[in-house]
């Protein structure tokens, strides 16, 4: 009986992990674009990227989630009404969750990637240019391998925080691990037990991630240990 509840909670692992994976993908894309903007020669692109990262790091995750899930559709609907349309716009919790988490951690990824890009030695890029590398070869053979090594610690940290931040989407009704734990806690009157099961799940995600990321870090380390 209690075991069934525990299995139901852990069964939602797919929801949590899918959400985390999709948000990570979006955040990496946004982080690349953001880093490119921050290092751009155009002033307005730098200002835009600065405003974006400032907003994402200046407002709590929960408030941003509520803004995207409740305020954004309300704004769109007011606009629709002003144009005399009776269409009603609503965001799915999935979409709102991925958009919010992707945008927040896109801000953090922007800073991670920007720092990594800036720390690729200038001389190596110039050497590549002098050897007649095109922009794609330069990126693939010189910038990317070093950038991955430099960005990895920050990336790992962002992922660990992101995986835990997914628990917030339970508050907008997405049926993730946290949501199911709450359901089981209320149904059985044993909240401590079932929140502990959920906590164990997140701890396992953290531990597995740390292990995997350590392997990847070894792969990209300066000195390859054979």
């Amino acid at each position: 009986m209690l075991g069934d509840y525990a299995l139901t909670i852990l069964g939602a692992a797919r929801v949590t992990l899918t959400l985390a994976g999709a948000s990570l993908l979006l955040s990496v894309v946004l982080g690349m674009v953001g880093a490119a903007c921050k290092l751009s020669r155009r002033r307005w692109l730098r200002l835009l990227a600065g405003g974006y990262t400032g907003l994402m790091r200046g407002v709590p995750d929960l408030v941003l989630l509520l803004l995207v899930f409740y305020s954004l559709p309300a704004l769109v609907n007011q606009g629709l009404e002003a144009f005399g349309s009776d269409a009603y716009f609503e965001l799915d919790p999935w979409v709102a969750g991925i958009l919010t988490l992707g945008a927040i951690f896109g801000g953090y990824m922007t800073e991670t990637f920007r720092a990594a890009l800036q720390n690729v030695p200038r001389g190596q890029i110039e050497a590549g240019l002098a050897c007649g590398f095109g922009p794609i070869a330069l990126l693939r053979l010189i910038i990317a391998p070093q950038m991955i090594r430099l960005a990895l610690p920050g990336f790992a940290n962002n992922w660990l925080v992101l995986a835990k931040a997914t628990a917030l989407v339970s508050l907008i009704g997405l049926h993730d691990v946290m949501f199911r734990a709450r359901g089981a806690a209320e149904a059985t009157g044993q909240p401590f037990l079932f929140y502990l099961v959920a906590a164990g799940f997140y701890l396992a995600v953290t531990l597995v991630s740390v292990g995997v990321l350590r392997l990847v870090a070894d792969r990209y380390a300066f000195e390859r240990r054979e």
Partner: peptide
């Protein structure tokens, strides 16, 4: 583990 779970463990959980 997420802070939200820690908070719920303390606020709702201890009542058990």
């Amino acid at each position: 583990t997420p802070l939200l779970i820690q908070l719920f463990l303390i606020y709702f959980g201890l009542a058990q």
